[in-house]
Design a protein around this nucleic acid. Structure first.
Lengths: 128, 128
DNA sequence: GGGTGATTTGACTTTTACGTCAAGGTCAAT
DNA sequence: ATTGACCTTGACGTAAAAGTCAAATCACCC
């Protein structure tokens, strides 16, 4: 079937604006086909957008996302480049692990807040 | 002992600029004491800064961080407010859980990239 | 074949979270 | 008293990631 998606289909699905998707194209993150001037998104574009948005949610910049995409599209062939890439991967891993710790701590805090709310509610509206 | 910290002590400890800490004060996130015009940070300020930076790392905006701080400083007393707060807590929890999933998926991807690098390296520089 | 609604490009604007001067105050040590 | 380190306010600048708006074009349907 090889269905094509229009830009607004994808904006609705992912909750982003058309401006955002065009911006990602301008930035070289996606390359939808064209029929005339209108963009036609394939499955692969759709998946790529999902990855981009995932990166965005965890705070990657466009440049970082582009870099990751590049690696997938065109992995380096030279040993030095490979080592460099591995170092960067290691750094990213550290960063993400830190972020996970931060998230876990914050989730704990949220639990505390919630419990405090519940006790408070129990005190106030004794018969809720 | 009740030690005071100077602004640069804290900037060095946390790896942020003085501008950043003054910005946080302008935004009402911290309220260091003053001796004359110079800021004196107490332990409580230090801890608060840690929390702020943790929030920052996981992508909270200044406004969100301020809101969280507010809740700690001055928890709402009215039932409706409490319920509202709990709803927002629940939303934040969802958001953070999503972020955790995103991070885990990205960590998996990083592992793939690393493995690909290793195989590639083994192929190329057979005797590294 | 004209209207309607979706798309496109391009330019300009906005928001967030600081960075970067400029211009000077404070204080301890020399 | 001067130097040097550190601190202050205030104004202006900037980069990233879109938002907004205008004008033009396109596809489609009756």
């Amino acid at each position: 079937m090889n269905k094509f998606y229009t830009i607004t289909e994808l904006t609705r699905e992912f909750g982003v604006s058309t401006r955002t998707l065009r911006f990602y194209e301008d930035e070289g993150l996606i390359h939808p086909e064209r029929r005339g001037r209108t963009r036609l998104f394939r499955m692969s574009d759709r998946r790529l957008i999902q990855e981009i948005l995932r990166g965005r949610r965890i705070g990657f910049t466009i440049a970082e996302i582009r870099e990751i995409i590049q690696v997938y599209k065109d992995p380096p062939g030279e040993a030095g480049q490979l080592r460099l890439l591995m170092k960067r991967v290691e750094e990213k891993r550290e960063e993400l692990n830190q972020k996970r710790r931060d998230i876990d701590e914050t989730l704990d805090e949220l639990n505390n807040v919630e419990e405090a709310c519940l006790t408070r509610l129990a005190e106030i509206g004794v018969g809720t």
